[in-house]
Amino acid sequence: MQVIGLCRFSFPALGDFQIEHDTVKERRRHLYHPTRLEERFRLFESLTLPSFRAQTDEDFQLLIAVGECLPKAALDRLKDLTTDIKQVQIIQRAVDPDQKHRQVMKQILQIARSHPDRPCLQFRHDDDDSVSIDFVEKLREAADDGAGLIKKNQAIGIDFNNGYQASFRPAGTHAAQVYKSLLGVGLGMLVSGECTHTIISFTHNRIGRFMPIISYPDRPMWIRSLNNSNDSPRAGKQKAQLAPITPKIETEFVRRFAIDPGFLRLPQSSA
C-alpha cells in the first residue's frame, strides 16, 4: 500500500493557519524572515530528518511542499539537507492569492497517488516535529487493524496520541510526555480507493467528526517542538509545563527518534 507524507516547509499561501495574514506578501515576510527560517532549518535538520532517514519501513514518500518564491539560498539548503533521503521529493508550487492553502496541498496529495483506485495511507508532518523510527511500520499495521472499517467508510483516521512535547531553549532541552489526540503530528489517514479526500482535507483536531478514528496510546510516537515560531498561540503556556530533560527521556529521544544526543545536551540557539 502506498504511504504518502506531506510536509509544508514555510509555504506562504493564505488560510488554514491560526496566525493569519491579509496578503501573500505579508505571509512571505513573516515566513521568510531570516531569524524564523534559521530556527525552522535547525529543527528540521535535527528533529525531522533523522527519524525519516531511520524508518524501519523504507517504503514511503515524503513530499516537501515549498513556494516557488522560497529564497534560493533556502531552497538550496533544503535540497542539500535532503539529498541523501530517497523518499523525499521537494515540490515547488506558485502561490496564487485566490487559491487557499488547503486546496494546493490537496492537489499535491491527489497527484502523488500512483493508484487512485486503491487504498492509500497518508500522514501530515510539520517541519519542526519528529516521528518515531517505526512510524511508517505502525501506520501499515494500523491499516490492517482498520480493514473492516475501511470497507464501510471512505476514510478512517489513525491517531497515535502518545508522545512528547519539547522545547530546545538556550538553557537546554525541556520535555514532557503527554497524551494528546488528533494533533498535526502522529496523525494518519487510511483513504479508500476512488476517494478524493486527503489528510489535509480536514482540520486535524476535527477529523473525528467526519470518520472513525483508531487511537494507539501504547508507546510514544512523536515529538512536538514548542518554539519561537509555532503557529499555535497556546505554545507559550505549554512550554511552561515542561521540565529539564531526564536521562530516561534523552535515551528515548535517541533510541526511538534517532536524534543526535549532542543536539539535546548543548545549549540551543535563542533564535
Rank of each mutant, 00 (worst) to 15 (best):
Y216E: 11
G186T: 09
Q165S: 12
L190M: 02
D218A: 13
Y179L: 07
S201A: 05
V191G: 06
D144R: 12
G208V: 07
G186A: 10
G188R: 03
Y164P: 08
I158A: 06
Q154C: 06
N205W: 09
P170G: 10
T173F: 12
M189F: 04
R209T: 03
S215H: 10
A171T: 15
F160I: 00
N161S: 12
K151C: 07
S167P: 08
I156K: 00
G193Q: 01
N161E: 12
S192I: 00
G157N: 08
Y216D: 15
C195F: 00
N153Y: 08
K152H: 14
G186D: 07
A171H: 12
A166S: 13
T203Q: 08
D218G: 06
L183K: 02
M189W: 03
A155Q: 07
G163Q: 07
D145K: 13
R206F: 11
I213S: 04
G186V: 09
A155I: 02
S181G: 12
T203C: 02
T196D: 15
L183W: 04
M189N: 01
L187G: 04
R209N: 08
H174R: 14
D144I: 14
G208K: 09
G193C: 02
A175K: 06
R169C: 12
M189R: 04
V178W: 02
A147Y: 09
N162Y: 13
I207N: 06
Y164W: 15
I213K: 04
L187P: 05
A147W: 10
A147S: 14
T203S: 06
A166I: 04
N162D: 11
Q154V: 02
I200P: 01
L149C: 02
A166N: 08
L149N: 03
M211E: 05
G157C: 13
S192G: 05
C195M: 03
L183G: 03
F160R: 00
A175N: 08
I214E: 09
A143T: 05
H204K: 07
C195H: 01
H204V: 08
K151E: 15
S167F: 08
P212H: 13
P217F: 09
H197E: 14
S167A: 15
T203M: 04
P212T: 11
P170Q: 10
L187S: 08
L187H: 07
Y179M: 11
G188I: 02
G146E: 06
G188H: 02
A147I: 12
S181K: 11
M189H: 02
V178T: 07
I200W: 10
G172S: 08
E194F: 13
A171Q: 15
A176C: 06
G188Y: 02
V185R: 01
G148D: 15
S192K: 02
I213W: 03
F160G: 00
I158L: 15
G193A: 01
N205T: 07
N162I: 01
G184I: 01
G188A: 03
R219Q: 14
G188S: 04
Q165K: 14
G157R: 05
A176L: 11
R206T: 13
G163K: 05
V191S: 05
R209E: 07
V178G: 03
G193W: 01
N205I: 04
N153V: 04
N162P: 03
F160Q: 00
L190H: 00
N205A: 07
I158S: 06
H204W: 08
I158Q: 05
F160C: 00
V185E: 04
I158H: 05
I214G: 07
I207R: 13
C195Y: 01
A176P: 02
F202N: 12
T203Y: 03
